[in-house]
Amino acid sequence: MGIPKMIGAIIAVLVCALANSGASAQEDYPSRPITLTHGFGAGGNADAIARIVADGLSRRLGKPVIVEARPGAGGNIASDRAAKAAPDGYTLIMLTGGHAVSAAMYKALPFDPVEDFQMISTVVFFPFVVAVKSSHRFQTLADLIAEAKAKPDTLTYSSVGVGSTQHLAGELLSSMAGVRMIHVPSKGGGGPINDLLGGQIDILIDTLTITAPQLAAGTIRGLGVTSEKPWFSIPGVPPVAATVPGYEVRSWLGIATSKNVPQPVVEKLNRELRAVLDMPDIKDKLQAMGNDVRGGSPGDMRSMISSEISRWKRVIDAAGIPRQ
């Protein structure tokens, strides 16, 4: 055999070996622990739901799924890390509605919110609650709006960070109600509710994970839920739209990974995640937190996020909210 033919044969063997190695690695996935990261504080909505889902995935996949919180910048620190992770399916991220809001709110991000991610599946959908401390003078949302109109730039409301969905929900409420309030961002988790109960802020805009236990305990008063109609888990809290017609904000959580993850790995993750969402104990826990549990295809999630980005851009433009 001549040298050129010998080199060609060696290259062919190496290519075949590499292809078989890659195929074997995909078939063996996962062969080690998986990290499920999110961009908000411990004890918050993303963290609580991530831990429930991680437990189910660990059982289904037979490998540990470790939840890692990387709070900051409205979730964008974690998103940037996940976008730049190795394309092997071992770094997942629990994206929130804030992912689409940030894409609409910021002039530039260090990642493309759609193209730099491989979507896996949505997990849950939910509204927010506008609430005050139970001892607060406001009994209704109309009371809040009346004072905000009489005393502009005096009432404070919380969010889990600039560019988060809570932030935009507050800005949209201010715009549609014709008032001005002061936004007080935090890193998320239990920070906003602690600030409300401690008297550092006037108004809380947060998820059902955070607000529902406090509503049940009577420590806070729900002035409005951001869904179009009353929400199934807190029927006593009226929709914000009953006072501010046309107001509606919903959010979601879903799992993604970095782009270029092999398709067999994506398909397995989607299949197993949707199976997790159908597990009775997992589904019951998520619904008990007030969530609409809803999985879907990677394409469904991608289309939904693109649509949400466009929707929030329209909201920001219509409300005259300055981009960051």
Rank of each mutant, 00 (worst) to 15 (best):
residue 2 G to A: 09
residue 8 G to L: 14
residue 9 A to E: 11
residue 14 L to C: 10
residue 18 L to Q: 07
residue 20 N to Y: 02
residue 23 A to M: 15
residue 26 Q to G: 06
residue 28 D to H: 10
residue 30 P to M: 02
residue 31 S to Q: 11
residue 32 R to V: 07
residue 33 P to G: 13
residue 34 I to C: 08
residue 35 T to Y: 06
residue 38 H to P: 05
residue 39 G to L: 05
residue 43 G to D: 11
residue 51 R to H: 15
residue 54 A to K: 03
residue 57 L to Q: 03
residue 58 S to F: 03
residue 58 S to L: 09
residue 59 R to K: 15
residue 67 V to W: 08
residue 69 A to G: 05
residue 73 A to S: 14
residue 76 N to G: 04
residue 81 R to P: 00
residue 86 A to I: 10
residue 91 T to A: 01
residue 91 T to I: 11
residue 96 T to F: 01
residue 100 A to R: 04
residue 105 M to V: 11
residue 107 K to P: 06
residue 113 P to Y: 13
residue 116 D to V: 09
residue 117 F to N: 00
residue 117 F to A: 01
residue 118 Q to D: 09
residue 120 I to M: 01
residue 121 S to I: 12
residue 131 A to G: 11
residue 131 A to N: 12
residue 133 K to M: 07
residue 147 E to F: 08
residue 149 K to S: 15
residue 150 A to I: 04
residue 150 A to L: 13
residue 156 T to L: 06
residue 163 G to E: 07
residue 165 T to H: 05
residue 165 T to P: 04
residue 183 H to W: 13
residue 184 V to R: 15
residue 185 P to M: 03
residue 185 P to R: 01
residue 187 K to N: 13
residue 193 I to Q: 12
residue 195 D to P: 00
residue 199 G to F: 02
residue 201 I to G: 12
residue 206 D to V: 00
residue 209 T to Q: 05
residue 210 I to Q: 13
residue 212 A to I: 14
residue 212 A to M: 14
residue 214 Q to N: 09
residue 219 T to C: 00
residue 224 G to F: 02
residue 225 V to I: 15
residue 229 K to R: 14
residue 229 K to N: 14
residue 238 P to N: 04
residue 240 V to H: 02
residue 241 A to L: 01
residue 242 A to L: 01
residue 246 G to N: 07
residue 251 S to M: 05
residue 254 G to H: 08
residue 254 G to N: 09
residue 254 G to I: 05
residue 256 A to S: 12
residue 257 T to P: 03
residue 261 V to N: 00
residue 264 P to T: 06
residue 265 V to W: 03
residue 270 N to K: 07
residue 272 E to A: 10
residue 273 L to P: 06
residue 282 I to F: 04
residue 284 D to N: 12
residue 285 K to Q: 07
residue 287 Q to F: 03
residue 287 Q to L: 06
residue 292 D to S: 11
residue 297 S to G: 02
residue 300 D to M: 10
residue 300 D to G: 07
residue 304 M to H: 07
residue 307 S to E: 15
residue 311 R to Y: 09
residue 312 W to L: 11
residue 315 V to G: 02
residue 316 I to K: 08
residue 318 A to E: 15
residue 319 A to C: 10
residue 324 Q to Y: 03
